[in-house]
Design a protein around this nucleic acid. Structure first.
Length: 757
DNA sequence: GAATAAATTGTTTTT
DNA sequence: CAATTTATTC
């Protein structure tokens, strides 16, 4: 194996093949590289590819690693198992779950399904939602499962009060319900796999035999269940190689236990510890800032990232008057960067919470900057798509009551709440799934509902038959037709109806794509994909679009130019986290992750006034900002502005005047560029539109429109800007529409975007 | 039982 | 503020 391309530490990682290995890999230190070479090297040393397992945190990472291994070793790399914990467990369970009394066609329940199960249980157990909200209960159940505690075990170590008792009953009823529905939630995938291994030693033995060499990436983000699983599998071989960075542990709230990595050396006293400390990603300034911030955390593993890269640009900090101001500034900077030869595809905007994306998105649309937003609602989470998926799930697994409830009256077929309640009662009495009640209809129903129910039952049975006779895509198309799912929207002429149809078609496209790509496409396998794969997993960057995402989603990614937004107390760090040191430390790690995403340029912004949760907040600048040495920051960029509120910070703080000429018309510049922007629809835009504002001196306020611009209005269609009056929030714009004549709008709130012909 | 209007309520991060 | 739940009317 040629390991020439690796540095000394990376090479050591790739060459240490036996026994426990801990690779402490700082951000951007080439850990994936080290890991892929290690796998290739194992194969080179005669280890069969199918004896190697590599567990990653996301499907995207798995895909990437697979590709890179294949590059090194060729086709044989396909036999290496590279997957996430969840996918791996799903695959193991599909084989052997019958030993646990489930059927192989089990459904994987998402948050929504969990909630609807819980809500049902509230009714039957007579629990008031006011006392225990489903969200909290879901989190508690997840937490218990991550710690491998069943309802009784959980209760055993909880205070014996009424609430505990109530939660115990709920949890235990929830477990029963899922089992009856032949369904597993996310955490169950791990828990049940462990159960399978514990109760069926030969199965465990076979996997121990199979996975001689195990790798776990992002080890700092593993929870107790995952930790146990790894420990169990590698117990005999002891060939366990974990990779991680305690400074990047950001999933504590989801049960990840940072102690897993901190005490690896205690677990395996003979472990080889390798530190990857050379950073290949960022400029020295950016790395310096990251190091300084993270140094404020206590109890870290000892390491220090360094780089051979040049200093690079200083980090630009901007204090905006408001969140809108912040967004406008970002757009302006982006347009300037675009003018100096930086593609929009190189830029990313990172924020703490999804809620922050809206204003930025708005402003990007107005500026005509193409963007792509990740997170928020997944494609598969959209109503119309979930409906189709629910049908498919019921067909694969008729015991899936939650999905059946979802579709029993969608589209409307006159089976209302009372009828469903009647069916459910009957099913309960007979101890059978709800689906059976569609055929074995209770006596209590009168003729009209009875007829509706039996028609629906016939429809479903027809579909189950059809599924066996058709190809996947053919079948799904048939299903959408037969059920009238599409028909209910074709009548709807509104934008919403149209988007739904589009989404349905896109879903069919996804099915077609899957059918083409998969070796043996099955509906069951496709549904598993739907459950476990996120939008981000299929994302392709480098398109000519700006990327918008949360810091959490950005983990593992890198961008030449990064905008970190909302660096304010109560936002980043969040208000909730400041209550304890652990919370703050995790926020700080999150901040560290954000900074280290940047390769060349880093922009940080915060707003002195921010609309949050429907009220105006005046937050102090984030403490993390203060932790970056002033020498790394740029104070030239933002022009001197009068303070609108006292900022408790030092030299690099600048405030904006309350009235900012944000949207002032620019006299010079020509709207060059081609392409058009998609109106109103969040998501993808093609092409770009450099703004005239780009020519303005740095520090000047952005102006997004000028006289003569072609614009698109949500209602009036295309028009031309004929006049702009006033400044700041008072600014008005006159637009001439071919069909409506001249109209005046308040510039800051008008639903208009720039277009180019 | 369904469609509409009114009221309420909640907001971190996600495999 | 918007999304969801609840009340009201047909």
């Amino acid at each position: 194996m040629n390991l020439q391309g690796l540095n000394r530490e990376q090479r050591k990682a790739a060459e240490t093949l036996e026994g426990p290995v801990l690779i402490l890999a700082g951000a951007g230190s080439g850990k994936t590289r080290a890991l892929t070479y290690r796998i290739a090297n194992l194969i080179d040393h005669g280890v069969a590819p199918w004896h190697i397992l590599a567990i990653t945190f996301t499907n995207k990472a798995a895909k990437e690693m697979k590709e890179r291994v294949n590059q090194l070793v060729g086709e044989s790399g396909n036999d290496v198992w590279v997957s996430t914990f969840h996918s791996m467990c799903a695959r193991i369970l599909r084989r052997d779950i019958e030993k646990l009394g489930y059927s192989r066609s089990f459904t994987i329940y998402d948050d929504d399904d969990q909630s609807s199960v819980l809500k049902e249980l509230y009714k039957t157990l007579n629990i008031d939602e006011k006392n225990m909200n489903p969200r909290e209960v879901r989190a508690k159940i997840s937490d218990a499962k991550n710690r491998l505690l069943g309802p009784d075990e959980w209760f055993a170590e909880s205070p014996r009060d009424f609430r505990s008792q109530q939660f115990h009953d709920l949890y235990s009823a929830y477990e029963k319900k899922l089992r009856h529905s032949n369904a597993l939630d996310f955490d169950d995938l791990l828990v049940r796999t462990l159960e399978l291994f514990a109760d069926h030693p030969p199965v465990l033995e076979s996997y121990r035999e199979k996975f001689q060499y195990v790798h776990v990436d992002e080890y700092q983000d593993t929870n107790f269940a995952q930790y146990s699983l790894v420990k169990l599998i590698t117990h005999k071989s002891r060939n366990l190689c974990v990779v991680g960075d305690d400074d990047q542990s950001i999933y504590g709230w989801r049960g990840a236990d940072i102690r897993n990595i901190l005490s690896f050396e205690k677990d395996y006293p003979d472990a080889t510890v390798i530190k990857l400390e050379q950073n290949y990603r960022s400029t020295a300034n950016i790395l310096d800032a990251a190091n300084q911030v993270i140094a404020h955390n206590e109890g870290r593993m000892e390491k220090m990232l360094w780089t051979e890269a040049e200093e690079g640009d200083p980090i630009r900090v901007f204090c905006a008057g408001s969140e809108r101001d912040e967004a406008a500034w970002i757009c302006d900077r982006m347009q300037q960067l675009r003018m100096t030869g930086h593609d929009f595809g190189k830029m990313a905007v990172l924020y703490r919470s999804n809620a922050q994306s809206r204003v930025i998105e708005d402003m990007l649309v107005r500026a005509g900057i193409p963007y792509r937003i990740y997170g928020g609602l997944r494609f598969y989470d959209r109503k119309e798509v979930k409906d189709i998926v629910a049908y498919l799930r019921v067909i694969v697994n008729p015991s899936d009551d939650a999905s059946l409830r979802r579709i029993i009256n969608t589209p409307r077929r006159a089976i209302g709440d009372t009828t469903v309640a009647e069916l459910a009662k009957h099913a309960e009495q007979e101890d059978m799934p709800l689906f059976s009640a569609l055929v074995d209809i209770p006596e209590s129903l009168s003729s009209r509902p009875r007829k509706c129910v039996s028609e629906f039952g016939d429809l479903m049975n027809d579909l189950i038959v059809a599924k066996e006779e058709m190809g996947l895509l053919e079948f799904v198309t048939h299903l959408i037709e037969k059920t009238g799912l599409k028909a209910q929207y074709t009548r709807d002429e509104s934008d919403e109806g149209k988007t739904r149809i589009e989404n349905i078609d896109e879903f069919l496209g996804a099915v077609a794509e899957y059918e083409k790509a998969a070796e043996t496409p099955t509906l069951e396998d496709y549904l598993e994909n739907v459950a476990l794969v996120s939008d981000l997993d299929n994302a392709e960057f480098g398109a000519k679009c700006v990327t918008l995402m949360t810091v959490h989603s950005a983990k593992g990614l890198e961008f030449p130019i990064v905008f970190m937004t909302g660096l304010e107390e109560n936002v980043f760090p969040t208000g909730r986290s400041v209550q304890n040191d652990e919370g703050i430390e995790e926020e700080r790690r999150l901040c560290y992750v954000a900074i280290t995403r940047a390769q060349k340029q880093l922009y940080i912004s915060y707003a002195s006034q921010r609309m949050l949760y429907n009220q105006v907040n005046y937050n102090a600048p984030s403490r993390f900002l203060r932790e970056i040495p002033t020498r790394l920051l740029d104070n030239q960029l933002t022009a001197k502005r009068e303070r609108s509120f006292p900022a408790p910070m030092e030299s690099h703080v600048y405030s904006t005047p309350k009235r900012q000429p944000r949207y002032q018309a620019a006299e010079s510049g020509h709207g060059l560029g081609a392409g058009r922007s998609a109106l109103g629809i969040p998501g993808v835009q093609k092409g770009f539109t450099p703004s005239a504002a780009s020519k303005m001196p740095s520090g000047a306020a952005p102006s997004l429109f000028k006289v003569g611009d072609r614009v698109m209005h949500r209602k009036f269609g295309q028009g031309t800007v004929s006049e702009i009056r006033g400044t700041g929030t008072d600014a008005r714009v006159m637009i001439h529409f071919a069909s409506y004549g001249l109209k005046e709008f308040v510039l800051s709130i008008a639903p208009i975007v720039k277009v180019n012909d």
